[in-house]
Structure formats: C-alpha cells, structure tokens
Nucleic acid binder design. Structure first.
Length: 448
RNA sequence: GCAGCAGUAGCUCAGUUGGUUAGAGCACUAGUUUGUGGAACUAGGGGUCGGUGGUUCGAAUCCACCCUGCUGUACCA
C-alpha cells in the first residue's frame, strides 16, 4: 500500500485483454491435449505461423487505407503496415500460396494460436483469444467438409460434452444465393443487410428478423437498427423457403449423405446460419452449445457459438495463381473453456507441492536431501521459500492447498525421523525418512 | 459506434430534506499460542467516495462534461 500515486504505471489492462489463471489454463491444456490426439488420428499436420503478417496479407478488405486500425491491431514498420492476425485462415492461405509447390495436395493442417481483434468485447469475448483451426486445402471433395464436422464433434465429446449439450448446424451459402436470384434481389447492400438479419435468428426469432428484413427494429435498450427494406412478399417468400428445413442444394445433399456413412447425426440443418460474410463459398458450419451460460453474477448471457467454419474456394487464389479450393473449421478455445468450466466440475489433477518447513537455516542440507528424495520419486515438493515462523509456513502451505507438510526440526533429527502432517485431516505421523515417499503418495491418493 | 444501467477500502456493498476526523462483512497484518494451517477472540493498516469543473458557508450526496465497467445492439473480414 503505497501513498505515492503520481506517475505510477496503471494496473488496469487494456479493454478486452485479461489475465488468465491456472484453473482456467489447466482446463485449456486439457482441451488442447484432446485436440492434438484427435488431430493425429485424423492425419492433420501441425503448423505455426507468426503473429504478425503484412496487413494486406491478412484480408483483402482490411486494413482500410485510411483507417488501418479498424478491426485489427496494426502499426507501420518502415514503410509497410503490419497487423496482428485476426484469424488463422488468412495466414494459412498465405502459407499455402507461398509453399504451394512443396506441400502435399490436399494439404491438411491444424493450428493453435492467439488471434487479436480490435473490436468491442462482449460476454466471453475478448480482443485477444486462442483459436484452434483445422483445414483441408486443395480439395473440392465434400467428404472433407463432412469429416471436419465429425472431427469437431469427436473433440467436444472427448472434452466431456454430451451429444445433447451441443450441435453442429450446417447450411450452404448456395441456398441464400439462389433465393436472392429468384427474388431478383441484386442490390449488394440489401443482400448484405438481409444476410446479417438472417444470421440473428437464434437471438431475435423470426419476428425480429422479419423487422430487420423490412424497415428495421428497435432493441431492448431503445436503439434502432435499420433494416434491409425488402418487399413484404419477398420477406414472406424468404421465411417460407428457409423454414422448409429440407436441404436441397447439391453440396448439402452430399454432405448429409456422408454424415450418414459416418453414422454421425448430431447436426441440424439450419438455412439461417450465415457466418462470415465474404469468403465462404459453399457449405458453412457453426458449433453451438445447447445449455445456458452465465456471467459471474449468475445472469444468463448471449453466448453465441463457440466456433464454425465452411468452404472457401477462392481465398488461396487471392495470393497468386494457384487454385486451391479449401474448407476449414475453427473453435474459440477460451470460449469453450469458459462454457465447459460452468458445465463440468474439473478435477485439477495437478498436485500441489508438499511443503518442507524450515526450522533452522543451518539444517538446509537435510531439507534439500528430503526434497531430492521426493522429487526423484515424482512428488511435487518445495522447501518453504523464505524465513518465517512456523505458523506462517503452515498458513502458506494451507493457502496453496498443499496436501502435506514435513516438520523436520532438531528434535526429529535426533531420532532420525520426521513428522508428516496431512493437511486435509490434520493427522500427524512420525516416520522414518525412507517411508516418506510411500506415506505421501498415500495422502495424495486419498485426496483424489 | 449507438442505447440503458452503474462506479464508495483488495472484494461485496451500506451511506438523501447536502453538515463534524466516511462505515460494515470478507480478505490482509500483528497478537492470544516465541515448533504447528483451517475456528474463535483482540488490536491494526488500508479510501484525494472514478476524474475534472461548477453550485454552496459546506458535496460521496446536486449540476455539467469526461473516463471506466456491465448489459443489449451494430460490426466481427
């Protein structure tokens, strides 16, 4: 507690950035290890690309020349604009274009990496987050699209989700494309607004979406959103068509057939999912959780999807002359962690260290000896860091949730024994040094 | 960006007809126990009441602007 407040650096974090603590990180590690296992089984190779790319590589629309910070974090290095990547797909397309001649076709890669978005964060959404991507590049085969969904489902179930707790929604860009053509809606602004409106159906329902397809809608806070201004009869046709719920486009028919071959049925055809607006060209998927997610005040929040993807046949071609149709899926790991931690009690398997209390610095050699025996046996152990009264040392051990402390002072040394105190039961035992490993393992076992 | 709500100790919050040195619980520190954690008791530290300006003899309290947070909405390549 210092009194000098002037010129102290801020303890606050920039908007949308957070510290992540062990409890969360261990769950994340658990998910990552499941991902890697599944990726190996499915034959994807591991890739890492840098955090920064040249700004014009990470998206063909951004950064805007006038406002290079819109949506992405950018800075000017010498004469070139660099940006932190906002996803892993654009860097993949760049990588494929750069290494096209060497890589296998099709190229199957997965990647785990932090991405950054310069946007307003929402519940469970940050400006820096970890993403997992798996992509197939260089194949038109729709089996790839289908397999990605099967694979994501396997990962989620390995992480402990039940079939009833998530679903993979699937649709195709071709549906809305054909619909707009049929209705003679060609104004690109109108199409864009209409697509965005349809994307919101899970939140607003058809009534809200119809308002947005028409004149516009006022939200709960009283804010007004302009609509697409479509004709009433067109809105009716759109609703009727999309409510039909039978996938008729060729690509979907084939993907659904493949799902059947895989015996995969935890998906829903949903023609109202839209995803990103520009680069998807065919099938699109979205991974949704089916249970409520709450914030730290216990309020249910609009959590949205935890991932999605789809087919993007033209992206690689943007970088050069290679035509590489592709399809991919990505998961926002931090959001999955957030949701999973609410759903499941995670036993944090990481065992906390046994604490060897220090009675006398001059006995350090003996303490190190015991510590070495335990560490060699694989038991997490530490000598109390510092010099404090025994009470402090016990409080420390309690605070870090240590399973046991070792009390080894002059009295014990005389008899060649030491005291092992079980911190959850409070029980103390006077034991020989050679018994220490077994006794501690017993305690740790009984705690699990 | 737009809208609504909110900002008092590390955390959760109390504190209006504006009035002496601004409160509680939890947490923290020390002690009761100089070789023993979790409970109890005692004592203590910690706040320019989000910031700036204004009204007033006097502002945590009223007004204006700004900042920050939450929620919704927009955007999310």
């Amino acid at each position: 507690m210092t009194k000098e407040k002037k010129n102290k650096p801020s303890k606050d974090l920039p908007l949308g950035f957070v510290d992540r603590q062990e409890k969360e990180l261990l769950v994340r590690d658990f998910i990552i290890s499941n991902i890697k296992e599944v990726m190996i089984k499915y034959g994807f190779q591991y890739l890492e690309t840098p955090s920064f790319e040249y700004s014009d590589s990470i998206g063909k629309f951004l950064p805007d020349k006038e406002r290079p910070d819109e949506g992405v974090f950018s800075f000017k290095d010498e004469n070139k604009w660099l940006s932190l990547r906002y996803d892993l797909t654009a860097p993949l397309a760049r990588y494929v274009a750069k290494n096209y001649l060497e890589i296998p076709k099709p190229f199957k890669r997965y990647q785990l990496g932090t991405v950054w978005r310069n946007e307003k964060p929402g519940p469970g959404r940050f400006r820096e987050f970890l993403q997992f991507d798996a992509d197939y590049v260089g194949t038109k085969s729709l089996q790839a699209d289908a397999e990605l969904c099967v694979m994501i489902s396997e990962i989620l179930e390995k992480c402990g989700l039940m079939k009833s707790e998530y679903t993979i929604k699937i649709s195709s860009r071709k549906i809305t494309e054909e619909l707009f053509k049929k209705l003679n809606i060609s104004d690109s602004q109108q199409k864009l607004t209409a697509l965005r409106a349809l994307d919101k159906i899970d939140r607003l329902g058809w009534d809200g979406v119809k308002e947005l397809l028409g004149k516009g809608r006022k939200d709960k806070s009283g804010d007004f959103t302009k609509g697409a201004n479509l004709k009433l009869e067109d809105i009716k046709t759109i609703e009727e068509t999309l409510k039909k719920n039978s996938p008729e486009t060729e690509d979907l028919v084939e993907i659904l057939k493949t799902f059947k071959d895989y015996n995969f049925n935890n998906f829903e055809f949903d023609p109202t999912i839209i995803r990103g607006l520009e680069y998807y060209t065919g099938a699109i998927f979205e991974v949704n959780l089916k249970f409520d997610v709450t914030n730290n005040k216990g309020q249910v929040i609009q959590f949205g999807s935890i991932g999605g993807g789809g087919r993007y046949d033209n992206l690689v071609n943007n970088f050069g002359n290679y035509d590489a149709p592709a399809t991919g899926i990505s998961i926002g790991l931090d959001r999955l962690v957030y949701a999973l931690m609410q759903k499941k009690e995670f036993k944090v398997k990481q065992s906390k260290p046994v604490v060897i209390c220090v009675f006398d610095k001059n006995l350090m050699k003996d303490y190190i000896n015991v510590q070495t025996i335990l560490r060699k046996a694989g038991v997490s152990t530490e000598i109390y860091p510092g010099e404090s009264k025994l009470k402090k040392q016990m409080e420390y051990a309690d605070k870090i949730k240590s399973p046991a402390v070792i009390l080894y002072g002059e009295n014990e040394m005389k008899s060649g024994k030491l005291i092992l105190r079980n911190l959850s039961s409070g029980e103390e035992k006077l034991i020989e040094i050679r018994e220490i490993v077994n006794e501690i393992k017993k305690i740790i076992r009984s705690n699990n």
